[in-house]
Write a protein that binds this DNA or RNA. Structure first.
Lengths: 206, 206
DNA sequence: GTCTATAATTTGATAGAC
DNA sequence: GTCTATCAAATTATAGAC
């Protein structure tokens, strides 16, 4: 615990940061403990001293990543706000977060796809029942008031998530396809903040 | 299971099919040659007899997968058709193809993300210049004619691809989130064929 | 073409000194 | 807490018989 460096990160913190870097890029199967250790500036033995094994270290990284993906959207949707504001908040949140962590979506999706029990064994219940009923009710009200047309809540959620997340999942392809520099992509990301709500609200327009 | 069937697939075909199954699910790093051999009903030695090493086998699978992702859309967009029909064709194509091969998107995206040179070293030029100029012109015409509003071609392409592909990239999460059976998901996929063009055309509406 | 057996590496994990 | 050295298991790849 007693770390000599006052302002520097603790060894555990550096390990977690290194693990994130390597796991995000290579996945569980492709990542090497050796590489994580090197990235953290230590050796394998010390890595195993902090985290008994690879699985345990991965678990830590994966859960934190997953938490940033779905729950954030459900949290915003659960608020008591006009629909349009929710959509804007979600768009802002994802586009800002994923500009900083563009590897996160594919990292999560890849592991979920590779391990059929990735979600079940962690009781990631994705407690959507309450959320869905809340959203369904809000949509019904807005529809009744004639402010939006009648659409399925599931389709809305999927569309919203797709428009927010997918551009980052394909970042390497997007940048190559459109000959974007890192700066270009930042501008693109910024523009998505407006485009996503535009698309969603146009879709909802009566 | 002796494979003495005359019209049955050749050994090479069965290997490729097995490799697809395993690579799609586990990725390059997570896949085991042993598992591919078992899936193909042969042993490792014979696997190496047909494909010298893992990389070479993977290359074959990856390139075929990538070809199904982007080029199909560009091919449809390059046709001489009204915009709305193109969008519908693209929606139909992806939703039908990905219902059968839902693991494909994450497989491709994961490898592209894991290897920074995945695209460059294969001169996957993604020759979009010609496509982009063609699409840009069509959008300009439709805009001038007052049939659609003025939107950036890049945003349109990304939106279209996101709406088509992302639901399958998140299939495990979607099914869990909405408590869908395989049959439910088939219905969901079918409904996407209409939803995607609805969203896109609403976005384009003046 | 297909197999068994085995070589050659890689890699996750541990032992033990400091 | 951190390191060096090393083990044990897993995994890719090859040799050689049939």
């Amino acid at each position: 615990m007693a770390q000599s460096l006052p302002k520097d990160q603790s060894t555990e913190q550096r390990i977690l940061h290194a693990a994130k870097t390597v796991f995000y890029r290579k996945g569980l199967g492709g990542a090497r403990m050796e590489e994580i250790a090197r990235e953290a500036g230590i050796n394998k033995a010390l890595l195993h001293y902090y985290f008994r094994n690879k699985e345990q270290l991965f678990e830590r990284i994966f859960l934190e990543a997953f938490e940033q993906l779905l729950p954030q959207m459900t949290a915003i949707l659960a608020q008591d706000l006009p629909l349009e504001q929710k959509v804007q908040q979600i768009s802002d949140f994802y586009n800002e977060m994923l500009l900083e962590t563009p590897l996160l979506p594919v990292f999560v999706l890849n592991y979920v796809q590779s391990d059929p029990e990735a979600l079940t064994k962690r009781m990631i219940s994705v407690n959507a029942s309450k959320l869905m009923s809340h959203l369904t009710e809000q949509l019904a009200q807005e529809t009744k008031a004639g402010r939006i047309r009648d659409v399925a809540p599931q389709q809305l959620i999927i569309n919203l998530l797709a428009l927010c997340v997918f551009p980052y999942a394909m970042k390497p392809i997007v940048t190559r396809l459109f000959h974007m520099s890192e700066d270009d992509f930042r501008g693109f990301s910024e523009s998505r903040k407006q485009v996503v709500p535009e698309v969603i609200m146009a879709y909802l327009k009566p």
